[in-house]
């Protein structure tokens, strides 16, 4: 995968610090699966966390027996983790589907999902990973553009299939658009297959123009 658009350093730092809303963290984890560049920068951002951990004045544990009681647990079996959705090997959910997303979708392929139509050529699925903001899969047909919008907070878009063009550039599968409240854009699918994106925000979007105002109530963002 030839990735040209990456996560912002500030976003990787927020992921490292654990402060991203769940939907954005999900999207970041998806991009990290296929991007060594961002994995390297995340390792650095996590090293900042490690260094800061060492800087804190230690706080003694309440009980003098804490170590003994943990030592007593070392042989016990860990509680069975909630079993992740069974995934049939590397192709589970299709080649374009990051594993962590496939788990979230219980291993279903994009075409097996129940898409909700928003406007001609535009469909979406609301994911509900919890927390503030909105997380959705958006699917738009060739020649279709998403209404012009800006954001109050941050918006992350990860292209999963197909490609689009907007004011920022051309985005292909694996690319991520990491935009803050200063950027307004209108992605256009100028290729000849559907474009499927994962989009996560930490605040509602602001649509501009008539089309935007018409669509807003339907998208419910």
């Amino acid at each position: 995968m030839n990735i040209r658009h990456h996560l912002d350093d500030a976003t990787l730092m927020a992921y490292a610090a654990g402060t991203l809303v769940p939907g954005m963290a999900l999207l970041v984890a998806c991009h990290l699966e296929s991007c060594a560049d961002c994995r390297d920068r995340l390792a650095q951002a996590e090293a900042v966390g490690g260094a800061l951990l060492e800087e804190l004045p230690p706080v003694a544990l309440d009980s003098d027996n804490a170590l003994a009681s943990v030592l007593g647990l070392l042989d016990s079996e860990p509680p069975a983790a909630a079993a992740p959705a069974p995934l049939s090997g590397a192709r589970a959910g299709g080649p374009a589907m990051p594993k962590v997303l496939a788990q979230h979708l219980d291993g279903r392929d994009f075409d097996a999902l129940e898409w909700r139509s928003l406007a001609p050529g535009v469909k979406q699925i609301d994911l509900h990973p919890g927390g503030a903001g909105a997380t959705r899969l958006l699917r738009f047909a060739p020649g279709v553009s998403v209404p012009h919008h800006s954001h109050r907070g941050n918006e992350l878009t990860l292209v999963l299939r197909g490609s689009y063009n907007d004011e920022v550039g051309r985005f292909c599968a694996g690319d991520v658009a990491d935009l803050d409240d200063q950027v307004a854009h209108q992605p256009l699918n100028d290729a000849n297959e559907d474009c499927i994106c994962l989009i996560a925000t930490d605040a509602p979007l602001r649509f501009s123009g008539l089309m935007g105002r018409l669509v807003q109530p339907f998208i419910g963002m």
Binding site: A17, V28, E46, G49, G50, G130
Partner: peptide, 23 residues
Amino acid sequence: TWIFTLARNLCIDRLRREKMPCY
């Protein structure tokens, strides 16, 4: 750094009752 990430993930699980989406 490694122990920091373990503690961070546990903390997110606990405070928000959500799993840290984790690759």
